[in-house]
Design a binder for these strands. Structure first.
Lengths: 222, 222
DNA sequence: CAGCATCCGCTTTGATACTG
DNA sequence: CAGTATCAAAGCGGATGCTG
């Protein structure tokens, strides 16, 4: 990207991560951890292969990602975030939070990958009863399951199956999100095709974070 | 911008504000409040006028800005953030924080506008002695002064002169930032050309926020 | 197959000129 | 002041081909 050539923090941040696809690459690495080139391609439907290669070079030079030869068994290189790259998490979180309302319905033609669920769930859910023993929930919205677990009063979501679950939600992502974010109740979601197995109390543990009040137009503090 | 067509919050946020220049326009409106078209041009050196016009149309359609005929005396229209647009503040703050280290030196050829100082100062400074009476500091790094004042334990920065000041800093922006962020001490900055008038205690009131610990590579919570 | 590099047509951007 | 018009250059998306 052409630099904005402005002595301003935001402009400098965008000089580094403002290019098309760049923040989505960071998203993939944040949610999934180390990725092979083809994993990234799979998680970024629509990206041109030359662009992905280009972006990775730029991100490496900017100190945001690192490439490492994977341990002997697998013969491939793995891309990972550096600590500096991982520090982008709050910025991605803030943008993700801002976009919350835009997720209420799924536009036709929009692609979806189950692990993308981890982002909004972790950002929006809290544990209603943090003192009770932790619960685990498995979401199945496609080929790869996502695990949601309560921890330290918060909620952690990660791609992959759960070792043991208190409940399993299966169905369309917009239904899963709708139920977990409190936009639709379980009964309605079930009649729309969502499958729910397990203890219904598990769901009530997870509560959408209260929408923060409007920031005043001058208020920059987070 | 072409949509990413992904059912993912981050992608949807970037569909709206991921275009080149878009977030910088929001920055201008956050820091300066309502702006005329030419104010925006002045605050966005390098933008092509057709792009600015295009972006404003897109931002208006997205519900992020609003155009209003200014009150009778002035015969011009003013662009302002909507509440929804102002909600981008946390995202811009997070990106600005991330870029903090990039501001340590000013690249040659980088343009600068004094009101841009308001962004990093508000993001990084805290009031060391919140219970003492508030202090006001005026910064002069160009034609338009910037006022920094302690309030509620935090620090507010805004473009414009202060009614009354406890101290005035005059000089190059990188020196002002360096001193306020604790990267260089006052004596060194003075010998590099920074002018300081007023009570030296005022400076000690303002303290850079402690760098938050590295977020773990999986940690998305802000 | 994983990991790119190349080519090509299209869209977006940048720079400048011009207008109500 | 607040834009529109024009055009060259850069960036992007899609397809395809090359290399271990």
């Amino acid at each position: 990207m052409r630099s904005y050539r402005q002595y301003c923090g935001l402009a400098k941040a965008l000089d580094v991560v403002g290019d098309r696809w760049t923040l989505l690459i960071v998203r993939e690495l944040l949610v999934r951890g180390g990725c092979r080139y083809t994993d990234l391609q799979a998680g970024l439907p629509g990206i041109a292969t030359n662009l992905l290669a280009q972006r990775l070079v730029a991100l490496e030079q900017a100190g945001i990602v690192r490439r490492e030869a994977a341990p002997p068994p697998v013969a491939t290189t793995v891309v990972q975030l550096t600590p500096r790259g991982a520090e982008l998490a709050p910025a991605i979180a803030a943008l993700g939070r801002w976009a919350g309302p835009l997720l209420s319905s799924r536009g036709r033609g929009e692609t979806f990958r189950p692990h993308w669920l981890a982002l909004p769930l972790q950002l929006y859910l809290t544990d209603k009863y943090p003192t009770r023993p932790p619960v685990t929930l498995e979401l199945r919205a496609g080929d790869e399951p996502v695990t949601v677990e309560t921890i330290d009063g918060g909620v952690r979501a990660r791609p992959g199956p759960a070792a043991s679950t208190h409940a399993v939600l299966t169905g369309a992502p917009e239904l899963i999100l709708g139920v977990l974010m409190g936009r639709i109740d379980l009964a309605r979601a079930r009649s729309a095709g969502l499958k729910y197995e397990g203890d219904p109390a598990t769901l009530r543990r997870l509560q959408p974070r209260v929408r923060s009040a409007h920031t005043s137009s001058k208020g920059m503090n987070p």
